[in-house]
Each structure stands twice: as structure tokens, then as C-alpha cells.
Simulated assay, not measured.
Amino acid sequence: MSRSRPLPPGGPGGRNVLITGGAGFIGANLADHLAAAGHGVTVYDALMRPGVEANLAWLEARHRDRLTAVIGDIRDADRLAACVARADVVFHFAAQVAVTTSLVTPLEDFAINLGGTLTLLEALRARRVPLIFASTNKVYGNLTDLPLTATNDAYLPADPALRRWGISEARPLDFHTPYGCSKGGADQYVLDYARSFGIPTAVMRMSCIYGPRQIGTEDQGWVAHFLISALAGRPISIFGDGMQVRDILHVSDAVTAYVAAWTRIEAIAGQAFNLGGGPDNAVSLHQVLAYIERLVGRPIDRHFSDWRAGDQRYYVSDTRRAASILGLPAPMPWRRGVAELAASLAQPQLGPGALLSGAENPVPPLMGAAE
């Protein structure tokens, strides 16, 4: 089912871009960027995640002449093939995104993440259309072999080199949980289709991405979830002890990386890159919450629960290879990015009103400032 007029040409120098999962957080930001740059964009999305309809409406309002919305499942081979037939490049974000959901419905997780990716690859094979795939740091497993030391609010690697640079693409793959297996299997299929069939593909193994248009929940999108809850005065559940560390990356930097991968796709075909904020943007849950408390000007009520399956105590991307090969600039400092996201969420006209509609307390003014 199409929601708008037939796909327009990309314009002078433009291309026809297909984004699966294009109404989701990263997909919508990428679609906005590419449509603004003069490309014709097809957003292919099943609209299964609550709230993504608002992202699609936002895109249609901004780019009606360059946007086509196709409401379809990644497992629908015929509908997907029809979209691939008119695409010059595909960015693949459509996925089941939560480890917790994969443990409840592993067959559906497999069918969407691995089966859907293979269906897409087969549609691409006949035309040799480039594909950039959104993978995950979960392909490296639980990382329980890394010796860690605990500070008062964060885990740090005992190895100074790992603390300085993070985890590189040379790290052996080790799939944990059905989600890790389905995304990891898809990751490997995408790379192998470059080797076996000559399709120019690349894989982005993402750490934690955050920013505008993110509908954060306890299961996925934790930075936005923390901010939305704090602004609404709701308590926050922490799984584990809160000292787990991630390198967080603003979505604008992720979009830059995906576009850079596309422009270099022939040179990087068959390669995977770790994509995150790197050591300079490595923060624990406690550290992010402390900064959010500063921004909103009041303490946050925390509730602690047991660790969840597959949760890494420490993951920070070694971003040197991606920065060098893709020509990426230094990422946005995390305090600035979190402050900007908080400011946008505190303004109902920018879209968070629906997310905050159940709040018992009004959104307070922001007290802190970005770096």
C-alpha cells in the first residue's frame, strides 16, 4: 500500500533511495537528510512500532514531492522486490529490535531479522543494487572475558589499550540471545553476498544511537527513554547496577556515516564497521542520569532490577577504522547532544507531546547547558 504519489526522480544528480524501516528513528532521520539533498526516497515500513506513524507524517509534510511511503512487511517478497526494482541504493533498517522480544518470540525474530534480510538480498541480487545494513554491537556477544574494574559509577576495562580505543572489528563474533543470532546471521549474509555474488554491501555495527525522532522504551532507545521519563517525572527502571557503559552517538553523526558509506560503497564492499561515539562519548547509565538530573533540575527516582540476558557490562566502539576509511568528522560531544535532545523533547510543538501525554507532572524548564 502506497501512501503518496509515485516515486519522483531524484532530481539533478539525485538517486532513488529505498530505506527499509524508514519510519523508524534512524531511518526517518536518514530519509529527511537524503530527501533534503535532492534524492527521491521510498520509505518502506510495516509501522509495527508504536509511534512511528508520527515520524512518517513528519517526513510526508516536509518532503511530499520527494517521498513515497510503502506500508509493507520486510517478509513480503513481492512488495519488497517491486520497491527494489526502482532503487539505486538500499539502506536496511527494518528489524525486530529488542533482545527481550526475541526471547519471547524467537521464530518471529528470526523471520524478520534474518529471513527478511535474505529476502531483501535476493531481490537485490538480480540488479546488483548497493546495500548498507544496520547491524549491532550484539554480534560480539556478552564480552564477559573482558576484565573490568568498577569505579563509583562506571565499569572500565583493566586493559589500558581497550580503555583508550574501544573494541575493534577484529573482535571475534559471538552471538548471544535469539536477537544476537538473527542480527549476527543477517550481518554475515550481507557480507557474504558481496563475496559470493558481487553485490556492493557494507555493514554498520552500531552502538547506542540517540537523538530526535527516537521513541525510547525500556527495551530499546534508552537515552531517549530516560529523558522522556525524567521530563515527565516518572521513575526509571534500571536493569543491572547502572554502571554498564556504552558509547553513545548522536543520530546526525550516524546519518553522516551511512551517507559516507554509500558514497564509497564500491571501495568498501564486503566490509563491516563499528559505529558509535567512541571513547570520548563512553558513559554509564548512572553518568547519563546524573546529567539529566542537572538538566531537569530535580532528582530522578530509580528502580533496580536483575540484569537482562545478553546485556554487556562494557561496550565502546573503536571508531578509528570507520573514521579513517569513511572520512568521518569527530562526533558530537554527548553532553551537548543529550542537552539538545532534552530541549526538543520539552517543546510539545516538536512532537513529544504524545510521548509525554500520560505525565502527571508538567515538563519543567531545563536547568543545565550543553558542553
Rank of each mutant, 00 (worst) to 15 (best):
I167F: 03
D174G: 09
A232Q: 10
G221K: 04
M204K: 01
H176M: 08
Y210P: 01
K183G: 02
R213P: 04
V190K: 02
P178K: 06
R195V: 13
G185H: 09
V223P: 00
F175L: 15
R171F: 04
V223E: 00
E169W: 03
Y210W: 07
Y210N: 00
S182F: 05
T177I: 08
A186T: 13
A194F: 08
S207I: 03
G185C: 12
W222L: 11
L231P: 00
R205A: 02
R234L: 13
Y189C: 15
A194C: 14
F197I: 07
I209M: 06
G198A: 13
F197C: 12
I228P: 00
Y179L: 12
L227Y: 00
F175G: 00
G233C: 07
T217C: 04
W165R: 15
H176W: 06
L173D: 11
G233V: 05
T177V: 10
L173E: 15
C181A: 10
D187Y: 12
F197V: 05
Y179W: 05
A170R: 15
P212G: 02
A224D: 12
M206N: 09
R234F: 07
P178V: 03
A170N: 11
P172W: 11
F197D: 10
V203M: 02
G180A: 07
S207V: 02
I215K: 08
S207A: 15
C181P: 01
V223I: 15
Q220W: 12
S182I: 08
V190Y: 02
F197M: 07
W165F: 08
M204S: 10
W165M: 03
P212W: 02
Y210M: 05
Q220A: 06
F226G: 00
H176Q: 12
M204G: 13
G233Y: 04
Y210K: 02
T177M: 04
A202Q: 01
Y193I: 11
R205C: 03
G184Q: 13
H176G: 00
A202W: 04
W222T: 09
G216C: 07
G185W: 10
C208F: 05
H176Y: 04
T217P: 05
G211F: 02
I228Y: 01
A186F: 09
D219C: 02
D219A: 10
M204T: 13
A186L: 09
K183C: 08
V190Q: 03
K183V: 12
T177L: 04
D187P: 07
P235M: 07
V203Q: 00
V223T: 11
C208S: 13
E169K: 06
G211D: 04
G211T: 11
G185Q: 13
D187T: 15
G184K: 05
T201M: 12
W222E: 06
E169C: 06
G184P: 10
